[in-house]
């Protein structure tokens, strides 16, 4: 295998060998690491279904060359729950029906986690909608998604305050 990169995926450091320079981060996750949560929707950066966090920031993994991300930390939907305990964003998506068919949901949730980390939207639904515009939902669960982001953000902030206390 002519290519080898090191990635920390969901907290586990892995050395990954492959023979084709064209592999995207999305294809690496899905085809080589069997992490199929990130979805290949458009494969053109237009739908957001492939969203993962790289070094803590949400990006489209379909437009990321795997080779270029040597040394990166990647967080996918498979890595956000703590055992059986759902991540607050996952729980909020269920509570608010933030999905119907579920295809876009891993990308929506990773994007929402990224949005909350970024901290620019606050509780303003208009800013949340704008900040989530890179994630399409063809079932149009958008109303539930915005409510889920608002609730999850509150839950995360409260948990942070409890931890600090």
């Amino acid at each position: 295998m002519p290519f080898c990169i090191s990635l920390t995926v969901n907290g586990v450091k892995r050395n990954i060998e492959f023979d084709d320079p064209r592999v995207t981060l999305l294809d690496l996750l899905r085809e080589r690491l069997d992490l199929t949560g990130a979805k290949k929707g458009c494969d053109r950066g237009q739908c957001g279904a492939c969203t993962v966090l790289v070094n803590g920031r949400r990006i489209n993994s379909c437009l990321a060359l795997a080779l270029s991300h040597d040394g990166a930390e990647v967080l996918t939907i498979e890595g956000v729950a703590q055992g059986e305990a759902l991540h607050p964003v996952q729980a909020a998506f269920i509570a608010h029906d933030g999905f119907q068919c579920g295809f876009c949901t891993p990308g929506q949730i990773m994007s929402a986690i990224g949005l909350i980390n970024e901290g620019h939207a606050g509780d303003d639904p208009e800013r949340i909608r704008e900040a989530m515009s890179g994630n399409l939902c063809r079932c149009a669960a958008y109303i539930g998604i915005v409510e889920a982001v608002q609730d999850a953000q509150k839950a995360i902030a409260e948990a942070g305050r409890r931890d600090a206390a």
């Binding site: 990224g114 949005l115 970024e118 900040a131």
Partner: peptide, 9 residues
């Protein structure tokens, strides 16, 4: 311009 994901990259 673009989306939050693209602006991050």
């Amino acid at each position: 311009g673009a989306s939050a994901q693209l602006r991050n990259a």
